[in-house]
Structure formats: structure tokens, C-alpha cells
């Protein structure tokens, strides 16, 4: 993966498959460090599966026997001196607070740090592909932040699908505008 934003798109897809109705994508950046949190309220994983997901020879798909999504993100984190941890609760373990939280940290100053890349396209693509579920995106850079909450959008849009082209364009513009403001204030 050439950009972390592509790993985010890939791994957030797991949350969608876990039946989450809310997936949070939180990026916290300081000058030296980037912390990525992907949290969902999906079905969660048993301890056994939780241990297995970082193994490339574990996968949920049926077309082949390798699953590289989480291992690739783990590699991206570890190759720059960061780490990746996953915590998960199934609905059996916790009927009200089930789901999975993935936290990956990256050392931005390391030569092998993968740049974040086009995170706006990632959010746009997630909403385009899964208009029925909610995403919360928060990207903090120092004291400033870029946010998008599809629950707020849904309240305004009512039954108009979130993947209507005009809405997807609005998402793109809204995020780009916020990024353009950063550093100006």
C-alpha cells in the first residue's frame, strides 16, 4: 500500500462486514507521531479470531486462504517503529458495548513512515460504497481538526441516500475546505 489512507479504506471495510452501524476513523497527529484508531460497534471477534487477524494466513474470505488487510497495516506501523493493537468484544461478551477497536501508531520521522495520502478520497469512497451505515471521521493535527459525521448529514438528508452524487461531492468539498483552513487560523 502506497498510502496509509488506502490501509484505512481496506481495514474499515472489515468493520462494515462486521455489521457495524457506526465506524469511527480517528487520526491524531503531532509533529512526531500519528495515531490511527478505527473503532466499530460491529459483531466483534472471539479471542481466537482476535489473535489470528494479524496472521496473513488467516482470512474471512472464501476465494483464497490469505488475508493481508490487517497484516499490511501492522507492517506499515512496525516498519517505522510504531505498533498495532486490536481489542474486540463479541455481543456475547458484551451485549451493549460489542465491537472492535484497532489502534495503530506511527513514527512520522522514521524514513519508512508511509505517508497518509489522500484520506479525503478514502472517506468519500467509504460513504459511496456504504450509504446505509454511519462514519465518524476526526483528523486532529496539533490543536486543529477536520471532522465529518454522517449521522448529522443523515438528519438533514432524511431518506435521500448518502451516496447520491451531489452528496458525495459535498463530502469531498467539506473535507477539502476544512483541510485548507488548517494552519491559517
Amino acid at each position: 500500500m502506497k498510502e496509509l489512507s488506502l490501509n484505512i479504506l481496506d481495514v474499515a471495510e472489515n468493520s462494515v462486514k462486521a455489521g457495524a452501524d457506526l465506524t469511527e476513523i480517528i487520526i491524531d497527529e503531532t509533529a512526531q507521531e500519528l495515531t490511527l484508531t478505527i473503532r466499530d460497534n460491529g459483531c466483534g471477534m472471539s479471542d481466537e479470531v482476535e489473535r489470528a487477524v494479524t496472521n496473513p494466513f488467516y482470512t474471512t474470505r472464501t476465494t483464497r486462504k490469505v488475508g493481508l488487510g490487517v497484516p499490511l497495516l501492522k507492517l506499515a506501523a512496525e516498519q517505522c517503529g510504531g505498533s498495532l493493537t486490536i481489542e474486540s468484544k463479541t455481543s456475547l461478551e458484551s451485549p451493549t458495548k460489542h465491537g472492535t477497536t484497532l489502534v495503530a501508531t506511527f513514527n512520522k520521522e522514521h524514513i519508512d513512515f508511509t505517508p497518509l495520502g489522500d484520506v479525503v478520497s478514502t472517506i468519500q469512497t467509504l460513504i459511496q460504497g456504504h450509504p446505509e451505515i454511519d462514519f465518524l471521521f476526526v483528523h486532529s493535527i496539533g490543536t486543529e481538526r477536520v471532522t465529518l459525521d454522517t449521522r448529522e448529514m443523515r438528519e438533514v438528508l432524511g431518506d435521500l441516500p448518502l451516496n447520491s452524487y451531489e452528496v458525495i461531492l459535498w463530502v469531498r468539498e467539506a473535507l477539502l475546505e476544512q483541510y485548507a483552513q488548517i494552519g491559517k487560523s
Binding site: 500500500m1 479504506l9 488487510g69 478520497s121 460504497g129 452524487y165
Partner: peptide, 22 residues
């Protein structure tokens, strides 16, 4: 849009289709 597709560059392909179709 699985890991393989995304790594190979599916994201701009998808967005190009969405845009062009519209």
C-alpha cells in the same frame, strides 16, 4: 475493493466511474 484491488489502485478507478457516470 478488497485488499488486492485497493493496493492495485481501485480507489481512483471507482471514483472515476462515479464521476463519469454522473
Amino acid at each position: 475493493m478488497a485488499t488486492c484491488g485497493i493496493a492495485a489502485g481501485a480507489r481512483p478507478v471507482l471514483n472515476a466511474f462515479v464521476e463519469a457516470v454522473n
